[in-house]
Amino acid sequence: MNTHALDYAAIEARHDLAGNVYFLAPVNFENAAFCKIGRSKNDPEARCAQINKSSTGDVLWGVRHVITVDDHIRLERLVHQLLASCRNQGAGQRREIFHLPADDAFARASEMLSQLTDINEIPIAVPAPVVKARRAKSSGGGAGRVVKKGDEAYLPLFMSWARRLEIKGGGKPFGQWKNPYFGYSDGVEGVQWNIAVDRNTGEIRLGVNLEGSAKGGGNWLITDFIFSELARPTIESIKAKVDAGRIQLTLACDAWQGASRYDIVEQLIGGRPHLLSAIDAQLWDEILTQAKGCLDPTRQFRARAKGTVTVLDTGEKRLAAPPMGGVSPHLTIHTLVDAEPGWNDDRLDAAMDQAITRLRPVYEWVSHEGRKSHGKR
C-alpha cells in the first residue's frame, strides 16, 4: 500500500500550533457593530459556551465564523494587529472586543490570510474529537486526525484515490467542521480531480472541478470553457462517450468575502445540479450564459464580477464586489464511487478505477475546452 499519500507525520507535527481563530457575534444585540475574536485548540462552540458561562450576562455570544489554521496563535495575533484601530481599550477579556461586525472582521482576516505564505488554512480540527485515524506504516508513529468522529473510516478510500490517479503527496485537503463535505483535491491550478464524502448521506463523489482563478496555471480557464461552449457546444459529443445518467453537472456562482465564500441563495445556476443526460442545447446555453454573468466584462471576463447576493441564513442582501470580494463561476462534474468504508484495498481500487474510467472523458473534455483561446470578447 502506498502510505505516502497522506503525510500523517507532518499533520502530527503541526498539532501544537494548529487550532481555531473564532469570531463571535452578540446574539442578544440586533445589528451589533462589535465582535469578539479569540483562539482555541478545541471546539469553538464549546469555548463560546465557556465564555457565556463566565460572563456577567450583559452580552451573550454565538460563533459566527471560524478559521482553522496550522498556526492559530500567530494568526490570532496578526488579526488583532490588523484590527488594532477597532480594538476596545478596556481591561481583561474586553481586549478581545473589536468595534466592527463579525462578518467584516472575518472578511478582513480572510483576505489577510490569503496573502500569507507561512500560515495555511486546514480542514483538521486539532486536537481531534477523541478519535484517531489509522496510522500510516511509514509515518514514524504519527497518527492522522480527522475532522469528526467516523471520518477516519474513509482514509483508505482517499489513499486509493491518490494511488489510482498518482496524486503526488496525497493531494490537498478541503472541508471545514461545519461543512458536511470533506475530502481531497489534486491541488492543480486549473482543472482538478477531487474526491469528497458527504457525511449526511455517506455518498462518495469523484469529481472534476474548474473554477475562476488567475493563480499559477489556472489563468481563468473557466472563461475559455464557457465561451468555447457558448460559441460551439460540444456537450452532446461528450454525452455520447459516457454513461451520462450517472454523471451530474453543477454550475455555481461563488460569492467571495476575502478568501472565503458566502452561502448564498443564488449559488446554483439553473436552480439545481443536472444529470448530464438531462442537459439539452437550450438548458446548456441558459446556464452558460448565467455563468458568464459572474465574470467581469471590463477585464476580458477574466476576473470576478460585482454582484448583489442573498445570504442564505439571514436573507440579507449584500454587495459582493472586487477587490475584497465579487462573484465567479464554478464548474463541478461528479459521479458516485460504488464503494463502502471497510473494504480492502483491492476492492477499493477496483471501485475507484470504475469511477475514474467513467469520468475521465469528462476530465479530458473540460481540460480541452478550458484551454482554447477565447479571442476577443
Rank of each mutant, 00 (worst) to 15 (best):
F98T: 07
A109S: 09
A25H: 06
A105I: 01
V126W: 00
N31R: 11
D43I: 02
Y22K: 06
R134L: 13
A125S: 06
R77F: 15
N52W: 07
F34D: 05
E121D: 03
S110F: 02
H80T: 13
L75F: 05
L17H: 01
A105V: 04
R134F: 12
S54W: 11
L113T: 01
R77K: 15
A18Q: 03
M112N: 14
A49H: 07
H99S: 14
I37T: 10
E30C: 03
G57P: 04
R135L: 11
N20Q: 11
F106V: 08
G92E: 13
N42L: 12
F23V: 04
F98E: 11
A105D: 01
H65V: 04
W61R: 03
S114D: 13
M112R: 11
A46H: 02
R135Q: 12
E45T: 11
V59K: 10
C35S: 05
E30G: 06
A18R: 06
K36G: 12
E76F: 00
H65F: 06
T56G: 14
I51M: 15
P26H: 09
A84E: 12
D70A: 02
I119R: 01
N88E: 15
V69I: 10
P123S: 10
L82H: 15
H72G: 05
R134W: 06
G57R: 09
C48F: 11
A102C: 06
K53R: 15
H80K: 13
V66R: 03
P26G: 13
H72N: 10
D104V: 08
E45I: 12
R64S: 05
V79G: 03
A128M: 03
E30R: 08
P101T: 05
V126E: 00
Q93L: 15
S40V: 09
H80L: 08
F34I: 10
L78V: 06
K53N: 14
N120I: 01
A128V: 02
T68V: 01
M112F: 05
E76L: 04
R77G: 09
S55E: 06
I124H: 00
P127H: 01
A49T: 14
G62I: 07
H65Q: 07
F34E: 09
A128P: 00
D70N: 09
E30P: 03
L17I: 03
F98R: 05
I97A: 15
G92K: 13
I51A: 13
A91Y: 15
A49N: 11
V59H: 14
V69Q: 02
R47I: 10
P44Y: 03
D104P: 07
G92V: 04
V21A: 00
V130M: 13
E30N: 07
